[in-house]
């Protein structure tokens, strides 16, 4: 029989309760013997029995709850075990090849777009800037810079503005 201290016995009663049938089998005989001769253990056992009697009354009563709505549940689709089949290796390889072919093209296109945008922004006078848009802190542009910008705008207009004949065609 395993030796048991009163503290250890009370810890077992505290966690396992007063029912000897539910105590660990290796310590149950020792605990019973200790409860018979140790007043503190006996008191702990009596207290646990009282608590369990109170608990049993509470556990016996369950309010009537609404029945489970079976129809609402079976209206749902069941998850199928093979809902997401494993991809075959050749499919994976094909997907990887396709991905490998368009990704560099996408990167190159993005870079080209960025460079073109940066270049256009770097051009003096690029973008529609009205006099009101300039903050007081913006340094005034030199007359030559203004002239250069005007010239660039003129070239742009010449290239992209349709002639009268072209307007008719449009």
């Amino acid at each position: 029989m395993t030796a048991l201290t009163p503290d250890a016995a009370m810890a077992i009663i505290s966690s396992h309760g007063a029912d000897a049938a539910r105590w660990p089998a290796d310590v149950a005989p020792a605990l019973k013997a200790l409860a018979a001769r140790d007043a503190a253990v006996a008191a702990a056992l009596a207290e646990a029995q009282a608590l369990e009697a109170d608990l049993a009354g509470w556990l016996a009563v369950t309010p009537a709850l609404a029945a489970v709505d079976v129809a609402a549940i079976t209206a749902h689709r069941q998850e199928q075990p093979q809902e997401q089949p494993q991809e075959q290796p050749q499919e994976q390889a094909g997907r990887a090849r396709r991905s490998a072919s368009w990704r560099p093209a996408l990167v190159a296109a993005s870079l080209t777009m960025m460079l073109a945008t940066a270049g256009w922004l770097a051009m003096p006078g690029a973008g529609p800037i009205s006099p009101g848009d300039q903050s007081p802190n913006t340094p005034a542009r030199s007359p030559s810079a203004v002239a250069e910008a005007d010239e660039t705008g003129l070239v742009f207009a010449q290239v992209f503005t349709p002639t009268a004949a072209e307007e008719d065609l449009i």
Binding site: L65, V68, D69, I73, H76, R77, Q78, E79, P81
Partner: peptide, 18 residues
């Protein structure tokens, strides 16, 4: 408690294959 029971049975139905 009612809600949890309903959900538990729903899960039992939908995940029955598991």
């Amino acid at each position: 408690a009612e809600d949890v029971c309903q959900r538990a049975f729903l899960r039992l139905w939908t995940h029955a294959a598991r």
